[in-house]
Design a protein around this nucleic acid. Structure first.
Lengths: 113, 113
DNA sequence: TAATGCACTAACTTAAAAGTAAGGGGTTGA
DNA sequence: TCAACCCCTTACTTTTAAGTTAGTGCATTA
């Protein structure tokens, strides 16, 4: 029995915090397709710095969305994959994605007035 | 015919940008319930500063999610309401909310180990 | 007469996020 | 021998977001 106080954040903000880094949606997106190595992600997202890539991968790992597997070989091989739990975000992403696409449509139409 | 280049952002990021201010989810949330005045929102979200409230309301208005109605009376009366378009975000919010709640559950369980 | 409510705006400061640059350590290939 | 690969870490700077404080103008209320 714990009597801890649940000062839970707003669940919308939770989602935004989990995916809210500048590169997190893109990292997550690539991992939906398949397991990727650090260097794969660097190639797929050329504009991200190593520092930010590391940091965001750590964040996603802490949230339990991805799993980091180190293969003790030389040169080092580290693989990142969505966890089973991480996959539960996919339908959320799909809904967000659909709305976001529509919104982008809308905005490019209005700018083409 | 316009030949503009569509450098559209990732639709996930679109949603995050639209809702991504510190107080935007909460503002939006209160407006789902009903139309609110500026001072109503101040009362409902005591921690927000007037500056940030104004700024976020302007952002949401620019995105077309909310409508600002000025009643030319003294003292001034300004009402904020979700637009019809803004209401299309509700189901997205619901999906995000469900996942976020579950995630918060999960995290408070693991911290109660 | 003085304070309060309303819906802001502007100038400034602080905090958080992201970017930049350099290094490390062991191994293979040229 | 020397660079390249791999997966980072650290220290530092820049950029962006958010917070703080003060002020506006008119009208009602105390």
């Amino acid at each position: 029995m714990n009597t801890m106080i649940h000062t839970r954040e707003c669940p919308i903000e939770t989602v935004i915090n989990v995916l809210g880094g500048k590169w997190k949606p893109m990292i997550y997106w690539h991992l939906i397709e398949s397991t990727k190595r650090f260097s794969d992600l660097e190639r797929l997202i050329p504009a991200v710095s190593q520092k930010m890539l590391t940091q965001h991968l750590r964040d996603l790992e802490k949230e339990g969305l991805i799993v980091r597997t180190i293969h003790p070989v030389v040169p080092p091989k580290v693989e990142y994959a969505l966890s089973d739990y991480g996959k539960t975000l996919i339908p959320v992403l799909e809904v967000m994605c659909a709305w976001g696409e529509n919104h982008n449509e809308r905005k490019s139409e209005e700018s083409a007035s």
